[in-house]
Design a protein around this nucleic acid. Structure first.
Lengths: 326, 326
DNA sequence: TTTACAAACTGGAGCGCTCTAGATTACCGT
DNA sequence: ACGGTAATCTAGAGCGCTCCAGTTTGTAAA
């Protein structure tokens, strides 16, 4: 920067302003500076800028796993808003078993991002709250009491799914559940409540977040004596696993067994998949998370913000009336 | 850090060493320091560390798109190696149309990553070479002359695919191609060469990197008068698009029309998809990219490294003998 | 011409760390 | 007891930028 300043015959400060597009630099001088920079092959040093600067323009984004489309959808939403506002995004990726979550969040913290937008964190509410105590954090698609949350009503969504199945005549409906943990219990509860209300027997089978495991666990259920006529999966990845298990058995989704997912991640939209699912409007969740993050930065001391939204049912080919066969 | 030093009764330098787990700090002192840090709620500042430090432990990773499993696979491979070596990873995500690639790479450059590992860049060879001139760069799954590349022989892979189809009796085989651009022409050439060698007529239909577009373009082909009995897609995403187009038309992949993809991204493995594809061993590509990056850091002036590997065919359910019907 | 005020520009302090070179302490054998 | 080596520890410079508090220049009103 020193060199560029000398080359352009101005002070370092002015070079800084010019590169940031800040006001207070005449058009002619700005042009002269950028030209000099180009001649000297100068690239501003983001790192130094972030150390010296006041901050406020870097968002950290935590994503559980890159193999799950949902998180890509959320990211798209965050990016749309953040980018329009000139914010930088720093990514941290977790693992499907959640074992790296703490480390990944710590990385973001140590990179001094101004706010963390976290989706798919598998830490306990208490742990999330703890990091949120040190750096502003907005939780996406999960309600963490006391922490900014952009959230979709999972209890209601699960109800929506079950009522759809019941409407189709299904009575033996199993819930293929995520590992029980703080913040991810409401879909399960929604299922149980909906089943009880209908006077049906609930049956919960716990699986993991991995598609392959879900396929395995679904397989066991499908092969059991009292196999269900419908399975409600805790998310789309798991539902795809169910579809896998069906395919292996030569069974047809929607005809032989109905399967319904959750998230409406973009993969479920594909005609080849045609998964009936509960839409949490993930991209919009991402957008709202970014907006919430900005609000938080503007007012660091404000009360925790909770943005709730209602999911909706998207009916595709993987659900259908209960057939005579099973 | 100053505060922690005072609290622990040592110098700032020693606090630095203690937090980095560097040698030259007695066990007792280290413990005392970390304890003091905990008491004061201290978190090291990565940004300041990177500004002051010598560098060499931060990798930048460019991924084309989070919706394509291939890139997640590559990332997994990179992460495995990088993490084992204590390297930090900084991510930059492009867009499916490649329009943001230059900006994303610039971001990495400005974050002063020590080396960029790039997969799915849609810039020209010249442009890639230019950034590679300013910051060490290793290109993954694409051969950029003059730039470190970890690459799989696409020409050979395409041949493998076509020969498999020909072996099954197919003669009308269309190639659903990616937009022609530097570095992504070899699958197309491999297809053409293989077809010519077999005395067959080549038919190339260009599509994009988006699954939905591929479905559309495949649909047009499938509906045409001289519809093919097999389609070879430039990658798995496009192949999934073909599967979508088939599903919409009530056609069965493998029975009515054979479809073969490219990449063996993890989604193609799922039993519900069962896509025959060419395996580029993406995770291994990622691992080798990380290793190459380290080599480059160790010897900045060495000749460009090219790591080639041979793809292999993975036969699943989406290909089969040409039927009587079509 | 003088005064006033905005626009354009500058110098220097400081962000929180790492690194180098040197000062201190501990420990060993003789 | 003593030099010598290794293990600890410390002071201070500097990484490349932004920010603050000015100083200078330009321009319009008096």
């Amino acid at each position: 920067m020193e060199d560029v300043a000398r080359e352009a015959g101005v002070s370092r400060s002015l070079v800084s302003l010019a590169y940031r597009g800040a006001p207070g630099v005449s058009a002619a001088t700005r042009h002269r500076i950028l030209d000099a920079g180009r001649r000297l092959n100068y690239t501003p040093n983001q790192i130094a800028a972030r150390l010296a600067g006041r901050g406020g323009n870097t968002f950290g984004v935590f994503l559980q796993d890159l193999h799950n489309d949902l998180f890509a959808d959320v990211y798209d939403g965050v990016r749309e808003i953040a980018e329009a506002d000139g914010k930088h995004l720093v990514l941290a990726v977790g693992t499907i078993d959640g074992r790296r979550d703490a480390v990944s969040l710590q990385t973001l913290e140590q990179s001094r991002v101004d706010v963390i937008i976290a989706t798919g964190v598998q830490l306990s509410n208490a742990d999330v709250r703890e990091t949120a105590g040190r750096v502003p954090l907005v939780s996406v698609a999960r309600l963490v009491p006391g922490v900014d949350s952009v959230w979709s009503d999972n209890h209601f969504g699960a109800r929506l799914a079950i009522e759809h199945l019941i409407g189709l005549g299904h009575r033996r409906i199993v819930f293929l559940a995520n590992p029980p943990s703080d913040g991810y219990l409401d879909r399960r509860r929604g299922y149980i409540d909906a089943m009880r209300d209908a006077g049906l027997l609930e049956r919960v089978v716990t699986t993991t977040y991995a598609r392959a495991t879900a396929a395995l666990d679904a397989g066991v259920v499908l092969d059991s004596a009292d196999a269900p006529t419908a399975v409600f999966a805790h998310n789309d990845q798991a539902a795809l696993g169910v579809l896998d298990a069906l395919a292996v058995r030569g069974l047809s989704a929607g005809r032989d067994v109905s399967v319904i997912g959750y998230d409406n991640s973009s993969v479920s939209r594909a005609p080849g998949t045609a998964l009936t699912t509960v839409d949490i409007h993930s991209q919009s969740l991402g957008r709202n998370a970014a907006i919430t993050a900005m609000r938080r930065l503007a007012e660091p001391a404000a009360q925790p913000i909770t943005h709730s939204s209602m999911p909706s049912l998207v009916i595709r080919g993987s659900t259908g009336p209960v057939g005579p066969a099973r």
